[in-house]
């Protein structure tokens, strides 16, 4: 009763929900962005840019009685497709005639929803609000996550003022130079979205393609054969598992570290003869850096949306634990 009256009293100030949302603090905005990404139905075209390279894609996200389904379709170059059906993600690569299937055991939700994790996030990033500007024809609120060290990248997020949906995201280095950017150029939020848009175009053709079905089993790595000597401030182990990336490949170890915003994956696999000549060093794919190294007859692949130096630091600290 009292609560409702209090709500009413406050309600007087609320002209529209949208106006109220611009008053939100930046951390609440992050929570809103996550909720919008999971709950809203939307379809649109976005541009992915990395360096001087850019690609246009169409994305459709529908939540209904059968759960969360999503499709990403690259419109430039070879027609690659990624389809998500709840926790199952399938990637169709027509050029390589390959389907990669990955099942996520449990989707880790963004820590902004958990108060303790927000504190962790705020320990390593200054989180602040920027200006309201237009993206894809919609007013958007800029949220800036500025790293407090050079271990991680900065993030700039532009979210639709009305719905909270992320319309543009940019990852920047320590000089505030863009590393990669996603930006909607056109988007429809809500309204009727044809479910046919979720269908894989290559499902029929893919029947004779090579299928790489990743099998994973969650595993506790604390007593494993591998020791991570270097701790990266703010990055905590979020999951450890045994997996096979390719059907015929031997089992490998996959450990994920995250600071709540960025993630680093470490893959450790026994070296077979043909891989022995594999290259070591640093590489990059889009906004993701990759560090490869060989140690104790194993190949280490450390990758993530963090600066290359961070990967090298973590990777060089990994050592084989000698059996007692």
């Amino acid at each position: 009763m009292k609560r409702t009256l209090a709500l009413l009293a406050l309600g007087g100030c609320l002209v529209t929900a949208a106006q109220a949302e611009t008053q939100l603090d930046p951390v609440s905005w992050l929570g809103r962005i996550v909720a919008a990404a999971q709950k809203l139905n939307y379809t649109g075209t976005f541009i992915y840019q990395s360096g001087n390279h850019s690609e246009t894609s169409r994305i459709t996200h529908i939540v209904d009685g059968s759960g969360e389904r999503e499709k990403l379709e690259v419109l430039d170059g070879s027609p690659r497709e990624i389809i998500r059906n709840n926790e199952e993600v399938k990637c169709y690569l027509p050029q390589d005639k390959v389907v990669i299937i990955e099942r996520r055991s449990q989707r880790k939700t963004f820590p902004a929803l958990l108060p303790s994790a927000v504190t962790t996030l705020a320990e390593h990033y200054n989180i602040k609000k920027g200006e309201v500007s237009r993206v894809a024809g919609l007013d958007s609120q800029l949220i800036i996550l500025e790293p407090k060290d050079k271990i991680r990248y900065g993030h700039m997020l532009w979210a639709d003022v009305t719905s909270g949906l992320l319309l543009k995201a940019r990852m920047v280095d320590d000089k505030n130079e863009p590393i990669e950017q996603f930006a909607f150029t056109q988007v429809q939020i809500g309204g009727h979205i044809d479910k046919a848009a979720l269908k894989p175009k290559f499902a029929a053709q893919a029947a004779d393609w090579r299928v790489q079905n990743a099998y994973t089993t969650e595993a506790n790595m604390d007593d494993g054969e591998w020791r991570f000597r270097t701790e990266i401030p703010g990055f905590k182990k979020s999951i450890g598992m045994k997996r096979r990336v390719q059907n015929e490949a031997p089992e490998m170890t996959h450990v994920v570290f995250s600071d709540g915003l960025a993630a680093i994956s470490v893959f450790i696999e026994p070296l077979s003869g043909k891989q022995a000549a594999q290259q070591s060093g640093l590489f990059s794919v889009g906004g993701i850096n990759v560090y490869k190294r060989v140690t104790d007859d194993h190949a280490l692949t450390v990758l993530g949306e963090v600066p290359a130096a961070t990967l090298k630091r973590l990777g060089d600290g990994i050592e084989y634990r000698k059996k007692q």
Binding site: A37, L72, K108, F110, A169
Partner: peptide, 10 residues
């Protein structure tokens, strides 16, 4: 979690 599938573009 923040961007849905868009980052799969990478």
């Amino acid at each position: 979690s923040i961007q849905g599938m868009a980052p799969y573009m990478r």
